[in-house]
């Protein structure tokens, strides 16, 4: 979604198609291309962007400011205040004191690593097979994959737990990670990415004598790095943020992932929103780091492939 939008934005200025309508064919618009907006439109666009930005990150900012608020400050006010009057890092210290955050984060990292690797490798292989290889029952496989997407996770969670338990993986991090190791949606994303590549590329490689693995590695993968980054980020966020599944699988507190472990900050009779917010912020940092590391690929459009549009 993201990659596609940015991709067209880049392609845009290169193609000067002409004015939008007869009415605007003037000297003024003569220098502007199809997707070059008028100043008024620019203002409007930015206003909408800023609005969307605020709506999106507003709750996040509120959490951030809550986590920095001192004990004598009101958390809930009629008009939300984003600037703490007495900023303090005390809440972070208290969150670290109350629960072994680093240990929990380590567990989450293990789970996330398995899930990201599984999805990037597995979804790429499966996506390529479904998009480019011809084999008996390919459509059936695709249909079956689509059908599993229809089942809501809540409906299968207990059956899934019973399976994991019978595999002897209850209360292990592997048990937490495995069911999410290949996401069907990711397979579909990769399939779409591979399918978008011109068939001629593949055919040329076949003529050159490349086998399926070589075509995947030398022709397919270099052109879908952007989508692979998307899959990696989605998988990471999914694994990192998941709460219910690790809660059900894990029993020993030492093995808890961060989202489950942070629940200790809000007990039955004690619930300081400032400390809870601090815990949330701590859990959020690795997602930012991961995204920052991958964003180079994330924003790489399909147009950087072998055949330019």
């Amino acid at each position: 979604m993201m990659a596609g939008r940015v991709g067209t934005a880049r392609v845009g200025p290169r193609r000067v198609v002409g004015a939008r309508s007869a009415g605007t064919v003037t000297a003024r618009s003569g220098t502007r291309g199809f997707s070059t907006p008028s100043p008024r439109e620019v203002v409007l666009r930015y206003a909408l962007l800023v609005l969307a930005l605020f709506v999106t990150i507003g709750p996040f900012l509120w959490q951030l400011s809550t986590s920095l608020k001192g004990a004598s400050e009101d958390v809930y006010t009629t008009t939300p205040s984003f600037l703490p009057a007495e900023p303090t890092l005390d809440n972070y210290a208290r969150a670290f004191e109350a629960v072994p955050i680093l240990g929990f984060a380590g567990n989450s990292l293990v789970v996330a690593a398995i899930v990201v690797t599984g999805n990037v490798v597995g979804a790429t292989l499966a996506g390529y097979a479904l998009a480019r290889l011809r084999f008996r029952g390919a459509r059936l496989v695709l249909g079956a994959l689509l059908l599993t997407l229809l089942l809501p996770g809540e409906a299968t969670i207990v059956a899934q737990y019973l399976t994991i338990r019978q595999l002897g993986l209850a209360d292990t991090l592997a048990g937490v990670a495995l069911p999410g190791a290949i996401g069907m949606l990711n397979v579909l994303l990769m399939r779409t990415a591979f399918a978008a590549l011109p068939k001629e590329l593949d055919e040329a490689a076949i003529v050159d004598g490349a086998n399926a693995w070589q075509r995947l590695w030398h022709v397919g993968v270099p052109n879908v790095l952007g989508m692979m980054a998307v899959v990696a980020i989605f998988a990471f966020i999914g694994a990192w943020d998941d709460f219910l599944w690790p809660l059900i699988v894990l029993t020993t507190p030492e093995k808890f992932t961060l989202t489950v472990g942070l629940e200790y900050l809000s007990g039955t009779f004690t619930n300081n929103p400032r400390v809870v917010a601090a815990g949330t912020m701590i859990a959020f940092v690795p997602i930012v780091v991961f995204f920052a590391a991958l964003q180079r690929y994330f924003f790489r459009g399909v147009d950087e492939g072998a055949i330019k549009g």
Partner: peptide, 19 residues
Amino acid sequence: WLDQPGDGYSEKVLAQAAA
């Protein structure tokens, strides 16, 4: 002693019961 987190307790108990 097991202590379960506040959220998701019903789901946790349900999974335990089913298993």
